[in-house]
Design a protein around this nucleic acid. Structure first.
Lengths: 115, 115
DNA sequence: AGAATAGCTTTTTATTGCAAAGTACTTTTT
DNA sequence: AAAAAGTACTTTGCAATAAAAAGCTATTCT
């Protein structure tokens, strides 16, 4: 029976760890006023369907807040980070940094390979 | 049609980006002589089944080399990084670092939330 | 009017992380 | 000697989900 040991990698919550969501979160982290669907799609190089899906996941986790409005006749969806989402993202980033440093140390401690 | 733009997050290859495999790769990166199945299982806090599966994935991708031998009467599986695996892992780590720095910059440039 | 485009959402498909069960042994224990 | 309990893995099966495809709905172009 493998007891659940405390390994730092466990802190890499999937909700943020997925590359595309990491991109979305990063884009939103730098935009206090939020980002429109279209901007995010461009910034993260995502298809409409994927962006929609990822945003919904992030919204369900209450990491982002989605607002739908009309600008003139056109619909506009705007995503912003929630306070909680920002907080949790920072925790994730710290965990990521630790993991990255450990990995970097490990790989640098070894010679590039021999015989 | 969303053209495949060059976004750094694309470099976060899934093969390494999965938390448990990241743990495995990091452990192996620090062990030029390789790690036994049992050691890895302990170091990464994985169940037998999961470790087996992840190792197979890494082996299929030729990122690790698996050697099976008998020590006395007992079987022993030893995993080592391949040169190519090490190389690709370093590329992944560099991408991860860039992504992390971008995210950290973004989140620090914004106030902890208002209104 | 009909076709194309914009801005999304929903559904389908394919992958895969993970737990549980299985295999093939060896080493006790009774 | 037979049964029970380990050890060291592998295989199977399912539930979650990322990505692709298909669907809206409304507007603008021709």
């Amino acid at each position: 029976m493998t007891s659940k040991k405390q390994v730092p990698y466990a802190a890499l919550k999937r909700i943020f760890h997925e590359p595309n969501r990491l991109a979305i979160m990063s884009a939103l982290a730098g935009a206090s006023k939020g980002c429109s669907f279209t901007d995010l799609r461009g910034a993260c190089a995502l298809t409409d369907g994927n962006l929609s899906r990822h945003l919904k996941v992030l919204e369900e986790e209450k990491a982002v807040h989605i607002e739908k409005a009309f600008v003139g006749v056109k619909p506009r969806t705007t995503a912003t980070l929630t306070d909680d989402g920002r907080q949790r993202f920072m925790v994730y980033l710290q965990a990521l940094e630790e993991v990255l440093q450990a990995a970097t140390r490990a790989i640098q401690s070894e010679p590039p390979a021999t015989a």
